[in-house]
């Protein structure tokens, strides 16, 4: 009995030591909240959480699904979110307006063979070529959004004056119904909404606009406030590395990646199965960001934006 007491004491002390070391490990993790919209392109942080890639890089991440992207910049600035998925156009615009945000990681790349961004003409709209859009109404998810900017640039490159086209704002799920009801002549959309609007009888010709836009255009990036990114350089680097591992996972096993997406964004199973994901890439350069600046400049959207270099931490 006498021998048992010190043994028990030793075991308790050992257990306490293990507990303390684990607490120390947990404390070493940088806590972050990541804001992403409910779209499959933003599956990477979800994979990185579920597969433990963030933990491996010293990050204790929580995902917050935020519909639309309008509130993300303010949430970053107020430190409610440490990292958020922002459209590159939105990042440029809010920086132009004075917010001090930087790119933490790239997100996706729109290549010229991309079929994820399109304008679906109505089944009986008689729209067959870009010029046919003049005088028509296009349902658009967010006026001034990166979709809208891409579409206007596409029309410019096709020699069509986009000012002669009426863009009508709507949410993604309503676009198909608007087209069906002929409230609009065409809709600008992305998957899975694009596929649903393009069903025969509702949609007619589909114009995949990325084909005529600059190659390797980054539609969105992951951004943080400069002060946070500067103070947490290790976590910012770890974030990008974890995202690279998530890309490898997504490329290796798309159904598993979509299953993870379904855990965060509850979609009907039949829709979940049809989802596709753009080419994802965490690398983004000031030159790629400049492609957006050029498009936005032509659309008179910027006031005093200096250089995309300022969006990257030195």
């Amino acid at each position: 009995m006498r021998a048992a007491v010190p043994t028990l004491l030793k075991m308790m002390l050992a257990a306490l030591a293990v507990q303390l070391s684990m607490t120390g490990l947990a404390a070493a993790q940088t806590k972050i909240t990541i804001g992403v919209p409910p779209v499959p392109e933003f599956v990477l942080p979800m994979i990185a959480v579920e597969k433990g890639y963030f933990k491996d890089h010293g990050i204790d991440a929580t995902i917050k699904i935020i519909p639309g992207g309008q509130s993300m910049p303010a949430a970053l600035q107020s430190d409610s979110l440490q990292i958020a998925a922002l459209s590159t156009a939105s990042l440029i615009q809010v920086t132009d307006s004075g917010l001090d945000l930087v790119v933490v990681s790239g997100g996706a790349i729109a290549s010229v063979d991309d079929t994820n961004y399109g304008i679906v003409a109505g089944a009986n709209s008689e729209i067959e070529k870009p010029e046919d859009f003049i005088g028509k109404r296009i349902g658009t998810p967010g006026l001034g959004s990166f979709f809208h900017i891409m579409a206007r640039e596409w029309f410019r490159r096709k020699g069509v004056d986009w000012k002669k086209i009426t863009f009508v704002e709507s949410t993604f799920p309503q676009l198909g119904d608007l087209l069906k009801a002929r409230t609009v002549d065409a809709v600008l959309s992305t998957n899975p909404f694009l596929q649903r609007a393009a069903i025969p009888g509702i949609g007619g010709k589909v114009f995949y606009i990325a084909a005529d836009l600059p190659d390797r255009l980054p539609p969105f990036v992951y951004a943080g406030s400069r002060s946070w990114a500067d103070a947490h350089r290790e976590a910012a680097t770890g974030f990008k590395r974890a995202m690279d591992e998530a890309i490898a996972f997504q490329q290796h096993d798309l159904p598993a990646a979509l299953e993870i997406f379904g855990k965060y964004v509850k979609m009907p199973p039949e829709v979940l199965k049809t989802l596709t994901i753009n080419k994802l890439d965490t690398n983004v350069t000031p030159q790629q960001v400049q492609l957006w600046v050029d498009m936005m400049d032509k659309q008179d959207m910027l006031r005093n934006f200096k250089s995309p270099d300022a969006l990257f931490l030195k």
């Binding site: 519909p67 509130s71 949410t171 799920p173 899975p192 964004v265 509850k266 979609m267 009907p268 829709v271």
Partner: peptide, 21 residues
């Protein structure tokens, strides 16, 4: 609905955007 990811409004907008009318 407009900005805050909590509550009934958030649930409404999230369900709408994830095609669960």
């Amino acid at each position: 609905i407009a900005a805050n990811p909590i509550g009934i409004g958030y649930a409404i907008i999230s369900a709408g955007l994830s095609l669960r009318p």
